[in-house]
């Protein structure tokens, strides 16, 4: 039986208008991501990883080309439809955590469960990232690693179909970064959430099912890891 992709792009182009100059960010991107897959998007700074992630996550629109999610044409979605698409299907994790400073860890998670159709119990989300005991702490009272793990809990609490992580360890030291990646891996394995991590750190690639390498806005290479590494086994 042929396995159908969860999300698929067809000749995706993205061009930014910078004053009078046109800057191409993505050129003819054709990728497919499958249910439960762990994908690492690898590339140097400015290669278009974040742009691709933003388009896949419904935060941005392509200039040309198509993007299909479960047979729905995302490229034709209105702003409102894109918002509902994110609300229902996508969990985001950013480098700067993006927690709401005026809400505690638990409340940051509840913020999402309140608007989700089929959320998990907020306590469980925090438990999955090992932060149940810090539920009542506010972002300003937590370390960077803890904040990022709350962001993961918040992202997975709605039980999204896909989890997009933009440089999740970019602002963390190695030890903390490992903790965060472990949490992401755990979510992928236990919840079977399609996970995309973008990074410029090649070491992280070994924990993925597949690695897509972007160079100058184009897919340069796609590698499949026969054996996925455990986070602890990664060579930093």
């Amino acid at each position: 039986m042929v396995k159908l992709p969860l999300i698929k792009t067809v000749n995706l182009n993205k061009t930014y208008q910078m004053g009078e100059v046109e800057v191409p960010a993505l050129k003819k991107i054709n990728i497919e991501l499958f249910e439960g897959e762990f994908v690492v998007l690898l590339g140097h700074s400015g290669c278009g990883k974040s742009t691709l992630l933003n388009i896949l996550g419904g935060l941005d629109r392509p200039t040309e080309g198509e993007i299909w999610f479960d047979s729905e044409a995302l490229h034709n979605f209105s702003d409102r439809e894109l918002t509902h698409f994110r609300r229902k299907n996508i969990g985001f994790i950013f480098q700067m955590y993006n927690l709401i400073p005026r809400l505690s860890a638990m409340e940051n998670v509840q913020l999402v469960t309140e608007i989700s159709e089929n959320p998990m119990v907020p306590e469980r989300a925090l438990d999955l990232v090992g932060l149940k005991s810090r539920a009542d702490h506010f972002p300003s009272q937590m370390s960077g690693g803890e904040q990022q793990r709350v962001a993961i809990a918040r992202a997975i609490a709605k039980q999204p179909r896909m989890l997009f992580c933009d440089e999740p360890t970019g602002a963390l030291d190695v030890k903390t970064g490992i903790l965060v990646l472990e949490a992401i891996q755990k979510v992928n394995l236990e919840l079977n959430t399609t996970t995309v991590v973008i990074t410029h750190n090649a070491a992280i690639a070994d924990m993925a099912d597949r690695v897509i390498i972007l160079v100058d806005g184009q897919v340069h290479e796609t590698k499949t890891n026969d054996i996925k590494c455990n986070v602890k086994e990664l060579k930093w």
Partner: peptide
């Protein structure tokens, strides 16, 4: 703005 943008990313609509 950053906080509000986060809310939008999390799936909150413009009116919300």
């Amino acid at each position: 703005d950053w906080e509000l943008a986060t809310l939008r990313i999390l799936g909150f609509t413009i009116p919300e």
